[in-house]
């Protein structure tokens, strides 16, 4: 039995009683995006010169993961209206009615504050500042401003997803350097090809909700060319760690081979006939792009560990 005054009412005079489970709240954190963030932040932490106490390193990763999750919750709070319309997002906790928007907002803000504060107290305030900026960039600059106003939304907004390795690097070194900017650029330049491949085969969804994704605004042909350009740029920047000397030649060859694959799949998309409904090449590129990013950062981690253990002189 519950006291009625302690609950909010919804229009019509009925008492609102939440049926949201912990799993629904976990879903607000976008766990799949979080896994990518955790992985790239971990890569930044490992590749950075110097050492960090392993316990503090684990806490840093936890804070970055929770911060990324918080920005996901804030994104879902703001985008609930369009999420309800798109097939890919209609089952998210807010559009499906399991969590109310205010609950998601409070959850996102609380997690943002806690993750930034704990990262600052446990590690350093530069990395905490970068994490706060990342959350702000994703929730405000991307979600509230760019997403619904420009077809370049994910190009600029992609920066939010690219910051984690830089934060990981800052956790160890306490600074930002050309190497960490290169790690940032790998994800930053990868994002457009990855998302536009998705946008190509989900074009009708984005069209229905009025989000100006490049294929809807500039057309399929322009999008395909832009995908190829960004794929080439990504392939080039991914070998720069070898050029700058913080990765081995072995990594450079590995990254170059993966880059060729990325460009190859992008050429496949370029050659896809206009109006192709199945869009198999775009789906293949999207799938490959995820493998690509994981492989590149895995390569960097493996390269650093091999060098640290002295397996290669």
């Amino acid at each position: 039995m519950a006291v009625i005054e302690h609950h909010e009412t919804i229009p019509g005079g009925e008492v609102y009683l939440s049926e949201a489970s912990p799993r629904d709240f976990f879903e607000l954190l976008k766990p799949r995006v979080m896994s990518l963030v955790v992985f790239t932040a971990f890569a930044g932490l490992i590749v950075a010169p110097g050492t960090i106490n392993p316990v503090i390193g684990a806490i840093a990763i936890l804070c970055i993961a929770v911060g990324a999750g918080a920005s996901g919750a804030l994104n879902m709070w703001y985008d609930a209206d369009i999420d309800a319309v798109m097939s890919r997002t209609a089952k998210r906790p807010i559009p499906s009615g399991r969590i109310r928007p205010q609950e998601a907002l409070a959850f996102g803000l609380a997690l943002s504050a806690f993750s930034v504060m704990i990262l600052g107290l446990a590690v350093n305030w530069l990395s905490a500042g970068l994490l706060a900026f990342t959350i702000f960039f994703y929730a405000v600059v991307y979600t509230m401003w760019l997403k619904r106003s420009t077809p370049q939304n994910i190009v600029i907004g992609g920066a939010a997803g690219a910051f984690p390795p830089m934060i990981g690097w800052a956790c160890v070194t306490g600074g930002v350097s050309i190497e960490s900017i290169v790690l940032f650029l790998i994800t930053f330049l990868w994002t457009p090809a990855h998302f536009w491949a998705l946008a190509l085969f989900k074009m009708r969804d984005y069209d229905a909700v009025g989000v100006p994704m490049l294929p809807n605004v500039a057309g399929e042909a322009t999008t395909k060319v832009q995908i190829l350009i960004y794929a080439v740029l990504t392939a080039v920047i991914a070998v720069v760690p070898t050029y700058l000397g913080f990765a081995s030649i072995g990594y450079g060859l590995f990254a170059a081979a993966l880059g060729l694959g990325f460009v190859w799949y992008s050429v496949g998309v370029l050659r896809m006939p206009e109006g192709d409904r199945a869009m198999v090449p775009a789906k293949k590129l999207f799938a490959f792009s995820i493998v690509y990013l994981f492989a590149i950062f895995s390569g960097l981690i493996a390269d650093t560990l091999i060098a640290a253990l002295g397996w290669v002189s």
């Binding site: 039995m1 519950a2 009625i4 008492v15 939440s18 049926e19 709240f25």
Partner: peptide
Amino acid sequence: METVNLTESQKKARRGRNIAL
């Protein structure tokens, strides 16, 4: 005092949230 009775699913959800918190 006016009161409401929670349904089984509401009780289960609340218990889950309390444990998680």
